[in-house]
Write a protein that binds this DNA or RNA. Structure first.
Length: 661
DNA sequence: GTGGCGTCC
DNA sequence: CAGAGGGACGCCACT
């Protein structure tokens, strides 16, 4: 640690002392004076020693259960002096908007941790320190970015602290993200899995202390003694995991940079987006639900007439029986388990000759919209804020993308007219508008960058319609002579390339002969030879190195790339082709989010980020600020990467998300 | 819990 | 020859 940092900590300790004087914590001041003569923390009376699980943990554990001010404030002092401490909260639940703090735990040195119970509330629970007073005592530590913390999935801790009026800062490391950046697929990134993989430790799991199923206790019902073991261990193991993982990251400078410059700074950005939420027009969705239900009833009646019997139109099994046995319609494709498929493209083809498949297709579209969106979204509106608050997951997708759950805001319909109406229910509050900004063809631009193919680079440099340009090359016509069908084929080729698709897949997609599809692909590679060379080189590198990487150095390991199982090996090859493009796009939009969020935080900026959908950012903007925001967001997104081709961003706005496109 | 399907990028 | 499109999440039926 440099001298400046040391000095800053000394000042912080002094200001802590001032704060505690103001709070009239005389016992703490006595503890501080005592602590000054002794390096050891005051854990005496409440100390709990834990024997390590036999043969697994080389460290002797000393976990403190803190129930009096003297001991707590001794720990505060110790945390204030520590260059880094692990921090964890225990809560009443996982819903980050509702969760209340039940206790907090710390660790500054492996094997030594502390738990402060604050709101255990079962019959006979021991007296505990007052929650709000404890949080006030911790506030200067928690809110000061100079006091570095390590945690496990600290975005959640940020939320629950926010529920108690505290803004967590100084989150320097997060073991979940360290593990994810190091290897997105080697393990799950929860503490229990990581402790086993990286430390060889079997930790106490939540289910061990709270049970599972319907009888699971909320944490405030767990005994204080049990909770202390569990929670202090969490903080202890978090610190140990960090000490194991960080050196591994530092040994790979590109990954350490990715971590420090993108993933870790993104945490507070995502936290603000989640907490801000998105406004939903509940009444509009409820009206749509009723309309959909009426149309579904009609379709069920028609389908049962066509089938000549009653059946559950939502059961693929019953549908198979009726289509392929009763009605003797030919089986076009089977599922991986050998059952006749009733998937959309199959039914689409059967619908040419038969009535029932079309009715099923129509029914499925409406049923999907109703069950997943118009019925569910209103249920997920937070009663206090009147908005939906998704969770963005930062350590799930192997390629570096985010994912979204509860609700998933990254798969809201857009293709069908009925689907688009759902987007009309995503609205801006009075006096505001939604602004949507999409990267245009970002993955193909990245392919141009990575491959360096001259033709592709030229097409993007001159800002051509890329599918039209591809069609012109492949079919040998002037760009303005490209037919709609040729453009559609070229688009399928372009997307197929990004996904590592075969001629067979392209043929199926376009409904043409396999030979014709193979010819298209051959023509494509003849016109864009750099792309073929890049694909070959990427597969070769993956085989040699066992991983592929993005422009920013993010790695995706592909252990099955050399598998003798051909299916696994080919799957790995397709991932090798796709991951650098999908992953680089993820890196770029994350960089853009950092820029856009930083701008949004500036004084006077009347815009905030509310959603991310892989290549799109959505903001809520005060009406009078729209023009400023539109140009600023575009500029920040374009500037998020400097590739060999320019990035292009389309910006739109409206009273709802549908209009904004 | 798994399989089939369908929504998004 | 067989299988032959990347990454997610969530609903329903069924076991």
């Amino acid at each position: 640690m440099d001298e400046h940092a040391l000095q800053r900590r000394a000042i912080d300790s002094a200001s802590l002392r001032e704060l505690y004087t103001r709070l009239d914590m005389r016992s703490f001041l006595r503890a501080l004076d005592g602590a000054a003569t002794s390096a050891a923390p005051a854990t005496a009376t409440a100390a709990v020693s834990t024997a390590p699980p036999p043969g697994t943990d080389p460290l002797e554990r000393h976990y403190a259960l803190i129930t009096d001010w003297t001991v707590l404030l001794g720990w505060c002092e110790r945390l204030a002096r520590a260059p880094l401490f692990a921090f964890d909260t225990e809560t009443t639940g996982l819903d980050y908007m509702q969760a209340q703090i039940v206790g907090v735990s710390f660790c500054v040195e492996p094997g030594r941790g502390a738990y402060v119970p604050l709101a255990h509330s079962y019959a006979g629970a021991p007296e505990q320190l007052d929650r709000q007073r404890v949080l006030e005592a911790l506030r200067p530590l928690l809110e000061d970015p100079a006091h570095a913390k390590v945690g496990a999935h600290m975005k959640f801790d940020m939320h629950v602290l926010a529920n108690h009026g505290i803004t967590l800062r100084g989150q320097r490391y997060d073991t979940m993200l360290e593990s994810y950046v190091l290897n997105s697929t080697a393990t799950r990134h929860d503490m229990d899995s990581m402790a086993e993989k990286y430390l060889g430790l079997r930790t106490i799991h939540f289910e061990d202390v709270a049970g599972k199923g319907a009888k699971q206790l909320s944490f405030d019902q767990v005994s204080v003694a049990t909770a202390a073991e569990y929670a202090a261990e969490d903080a202890d193991v978090t610190l140990r995991l960090h000490q194991a993982l960080w050196p591994q990251l530092e040994a790979l400078p590109a990954l350490a940079r990715l971590y420090q410059e993108i993933e870790q700074p993104l945490v507070p950005v995502l936290q603000r987006m989640e907490r801000g939420g998105v406004l939903i027009d509940r009444a509009m969705l409820q009206r749509q639900s009723l309309e959909l239900a009426a149309r579904m009833r009609e379709l069920i009646a028609a389908a049962q007439r066509a089938a000549g019997q009653e059946f559950n139109v939502e059961s693929p099994k019953q549908l198979q029986q009726i289509l392929f046995e009763k009605l003797q319609i030919p089986v076009l494709r089977k599922t991986p388990t050998g059952q006749p498929s009733t998937a959309e493209d199959v039914l689409e083809e059967l619908a040419v000759e038969h009535e029932l498949p079309r009715l099923i297709l129509d029914y499925r579209l409406l049923a999907k919209l109703r069950s997943t969106y118009t019925e569910k979204l209103p249920e997920q509106i937070d009663a206090h804020t009147g908005r939906v608050h998704t969770s963005y997951h930062q350590a799930v997708a192997a390629t570096g993308r985010l994912s979204s759950t509860d609700p998933n805001l990254q798969n809201i319909p857009i293709r069908s007219p009925e689907g688009r109406r759902i987007r009309q229910a995503f609205i801006a509050p009075p006096g505001h508008l939604l602004l949507a900004a999409d990267y245009s063809q970002i993955e193909l631009r990245i392919m141009a960058h990575l491959s360096g193919d001259a033709g592709l680079l030229r097409a993007f440099a001159t800002d051509q319609d890329i599918h039209q340009a591809t069609a012109a090359e492949v079919f040998g016509v002037a760009p303005d002579q490209v037919s709609a069908d040729q453009r559609r084929s070229a688009k399928a080729i372009n997307f197929g390339l990004i996904y590592g698709m075969s001629a067979f897949g392209l043929a199926r997609q376009l409904g043409i002969e396999r030979g014709a599809a193979a010819q298209y692909v051959e023509l494509y590679f003849a016109r864009y030879p750099g792309v073929r060379a890049y694909m070959d080189a990427t597969r070769e590198r993956a085989r040699r190195d066992g991983y592929v990487e993005t422009v920013y150095g993010r790695r995706l390991y592909l252990p099955e790339i050399n598998s003798r199982n051909r299916q696994l090996q080919q799957y790995a090859e397709r991932s090798a082709i796709n991951a650098p493009m999908q992953g680089t796009a993820a890196d770029i939009i994350k960089r853009a989010m950092l820029g856009v969020d930083a701008w949004c935080q500036e004084p006077g900026v009347a815009a905030r980020l509310i959603m991310q959908v892989h290549d799109e950012l959505v903001l809520e903007v005060r009406e009078d600020y729209l023009a400023t925001a539109g140009e600023r967001v575009r500029a920040l997104m374009v500037a998020a990467a400097q590739l060999r081709v320019p990035l292009s961003v389309e910006v739109g706005h409206g009273r709802n998300w549908d209009e904004a496109h």
